[in-house]
Design a protein around this nucleic acid. Structure first.
Lengths: 370, 370
DNA sequence: CTGTTAGCGCTTTCAG
DNA sequence: CTGAAAGCGCTAACAG
């Protein structure tokens, strides 16, 4: 028993399918009250549900918003997804989800799939890679996106334009001031902390990570501090943990009475003899920061006493973490909402989209201990 | 410039649309190698992308999996979503997302929307309500679901059958042994802890919450302990926090030298004079447990010294929380995967779907302190 | 205000 | 093995 169709409803109501369509879906003018009621009743009694595919085919517009994330279980992405979801509800559309692990090839695939479904707009939330081995993938992704835009699709990208995309019509970028905010974080940290800085970054070429690293270094240098060493690792909790382990070993080695560092470079800055001020760790996102903190703790080190830790994003689920994590607050949900809105044509609500603004939020994990 | 169509490809290749269709999409037999290549080339050069809506309309199957969650930003749901997403990829389908805040009315709406899009299957991940005011909403939801199934749709529900659903064909339930696991948690806790128990539960009628409460009480009683008091609050972090605050006040009041409880009931069980063993708190999910822990801490209470806390779910993002949270591990991602698979027809992979199994996981937050 | 007539792009019998 | 023709269910010009 298949779902009932508009035609059946029309027949039952004794009208033409066109009329039925007009009353059940919002056409310009509503037909005569009497007939309209008859149709609505027929629809009701048949349990009529319009076939969105047929509607889409006829109107060539699907009521779908495509959302591309690296991993929906990552709180950063799920927060953005929530914003997109909300915007979708406002627009009376549904969201189509694709997880890509950040691989340009699967992003391209996802875009193609969205295009195939005639998604009205696409939101790309993950940051892109710009490594040499990704140029081909990115080019294909850009081509796919261009084609989609050329066919009338709307694209919104969070954070960064896709490398190599011809900035066509219908291509929007929600700017996230990663660099500025990271710089600000660095300068606020530098103002209160003596210790040497070290950065736990994602793989080289990951744009968001690179921006935050660059900004942080700039802030440091503006504050008259030497550039921080950068540890490259994976852009997730376990990457942070590994880096944290490495750092912990170093801290313990540098302690008065500790073994000499296995590192053959001379310990930078602080003279090895005096107990140095605690190391200041900046991880390019909160999840990595938490991983690093866990690693330090597992090695018997305390935060902020033996080292301070700061992150980026201000992930909600992590706010009860102790010591409270210093970070940069990003309005993730708002970012998602805004991306979905700008791709819907109405940027914000008539007014220009208020630019995304974050906020350095210093908490316990970077406090100086008395 | 609209996207190019099958017909255009066919014309370019000098064949009929039918043939083009046969080679581009998996029809029974592949046409002659020579002609096939010609078609493929034409498609390539035109950048042809099949119109999924048209395909769906013709085949009446959309390649879509509908997923209903309360809130995609909640780590419990995003973990399940990830599993569903994976299964979708295996099935070469896409997932359509709907967030409903748990309201039966919007769940019904979501099901209708999925049905309209001719989703091949629907996964409902949130637990349902069974309050008196929800009976109507649930009935409508059940009706919508039944209709969907009758039209050939497949439904998988995580945890609980929808109240009042006629268990039709195509209606699957992924059982989650909430009750048993909660009982087991209670008995393991009762074995090592002396203190009185108190439960922080969600609103009355929320099935998952109720199951866990019931199970926990059973475990307690099997261990010869009196039933725990149940504090009802909202099923999220802030609910846990509020309850935690209330409990903290009580603990402080009950302390030797503390003020008398503002509560007019006599303090249950332990004689008020002796310092009682620390209270054992069980929150029906991790997020609430974290909230409660934060509240206790904010009142100067320490865990597990002044009170112990246990949760449920074993949310990954919360694993680095200190003190490490005792909880019941649930294979959330697997649950999502299994739900999506069972709704796809192939339960598991030919074999019966291995039932979901959790595991009581005791950690620091419920340890006895020396 | 309502009905008729064409498609939207694809699949799928059914002939050739 | 290939092509022609008939829809899938709905909307959108046009007429009436």
């Amino acid at each position: 028993m298949a779902a009932s169709t508009l035609t059946e409803v029309a027949r039952l109501a004794g009208v033409s399918p066109a009329t039925a369509s007009r009353v059940l879906n919002g056409s310009a003018r509503i037909p005569g009250k009497d007939i309209a009621d008859r149709v609505r009743q027929a629809a009701e009694s048949l349990g009529y549900i319009p076939n969105a595919q047929a509607q889409g085919l006829a109107k060539s517009s699907s009521g779908l918003i495509g959302l591309i994330v690296h991993d929906i279980a990552d709180p950063y992405f799920s927060a953005i997804a929530r914003g997109v979801q909300e915007a979708a509800r406002e627009q009376r559309k549904m969201v189509l989800l694709a997880s890509t692990e950040g691989a340009p090839a699967s992003e391209k695939e996802a875009v193609a799939a969205f295009a195939a479904r005639r998604a009205d707009s696409i939101v790309i939330a993950g940051s892109r890679m710009s490594r040499p081995e990704d140029v081909e993938g990115n080019a294909e992704l850009a081509a796919e996106l261009d084609r989609y835009c050329r066919n009338g699709g709307q694209v919104a990208v969070v954070g960064h334009a896709v490398v190599g995309a011809a900035t066509e019509e219908g291509y929007h970028v929600v700017q996230v001031p990663n660099e500025e905010l990271a710089a600000q974080l660095a300068s606020e940290l530098a103002a209160t902390r003596e210790g040497e800085f070290v950065i736990i970054g994602g793989p080289e070429g990951l744009l968001t990570s690179d921006d935050r690293i660059r900004g942080f270094q700039q802030g440091l240098s503006a504050a008259g501090r030497p550039a921080a060493e950068v540890l490259r690792t994976s852009f997730n909790r376990s990457g942070g943990f590994d880096a944290g382990l490495a750092i912990a070993a170093r801290i313990k080695a540098a302690r008065p009475g500790g073994a000499a560092p296995s590192d053959d470079r001379p310990a930078p800055a602080a003279p090895p003899a005096a107990a140095p001020a605690p190391l200041c760790i900046f991880a390019v996102n909160d999840v990595m920061a938490i991983g690093a903190a866990a690693a330090l703790r597992s090695q018997g080190l305390r935060i902020p006493r033996d080292a301070t830790v700061a992150g980026f994003d201000d992930i909600e689920t992590l706010r009860d973490f102790r010591p409270a994590l210093s970070t940069v607050h990003l309005p993730l949900e708002e970012i998602g909402r805004q991306a979905a809105r700008s791709a819907a044509g109405r940027d914000g609500d008539g007014a220009a989209p208020s630019p995304v603004t974050g906020k350095v939020t210093l908490r316990r994990s970077t406090e100086t201990v008395a």
